[in-house]
Amino acid sequence: MIKISSLVAVTAYTLILTTGAFAAGSHIEIPRNEWSFSGISGQYDKAQLQRGFQIYREACSSCHSLNRIAFRNLAQKGGPEFPEEELKVLASEYEVDALPNEDGEVKKRSAVLSDRFPPLYANEKEARSIHNGALPPDLSVIAKARGTAYVGPWYWHPFAMFADIFNGYQEGGSDYIAALLTGYDEPPETMEISEGMNYNKYYPGHQIAMANPFAGGNNQVEYQSAMIPSTVKQYAKDVAAFLSWASDPTLNQRKQTGWQVLVYLLITGVLLYIAKRRIWASVKH
């Protein structure tokens, strides 16, 4: 058994060391948050996802599309779980292309639950011309497309990676989004910001084309529940949680299934070990 555990340790360490090269890069330390969906057993908080969607609608959706999400997804289990009736009303506020009519014209129709959020721009060129040359990315998988870099001494890196694997840390993108949205600030005196750019503590290079979506400060968005503080920090966390769900809508099911599988495997493992011992008991080895 000692051999097995040392083998597992060596394997893990090798894996960790070799994956280490990924993390090299930007060295801005992104603070980590406590998320309801953190770690190996965390699950989404429905109310937070609903608030996050509200923030997306009010602060992000005029520039950022959400092309890979269908309206029906917002009703799905493990998501914001809005009632379908509400979503039908929401969908009807959007327009999508209808099928060509008998004369071959493509007209618009209002969206239904099975439609995805329509694109905001005809193409990349149009988006860039509207936004002063910058392209606001689609947000459907943004939480998975961003991450945090390890900051610290290299010899500690493997242990930090092992801890991340062990704790099931997958919220780098969520942490990054929450940090970015709260990272707007006055630039340091030594730094010159180009025309149309904004200073952000957490953006690589510190110059970001996106303006602060919460420039109105606290109380910019009106939450339905008075229990939730109406602050920029809270907005950032809520919308980051919503976008994390958008990137990874099956997280709840994935982690639940994971535990069932692990328990099954552990029991099988114990039984196999006992069986193996019994069989080998008669043999000298």
């Binding site: 694997i165 997958q170 994971g258």
Partner: peptide, 11 residues
């Protein structure tokens, strides 16, 4: 399984 269910994007 640990990787598949808990840290699928780690690698």
């Amino acid at each position: 399984a640990w990787f598949v269910f808990f840290v699928p994007d780690y690698l």
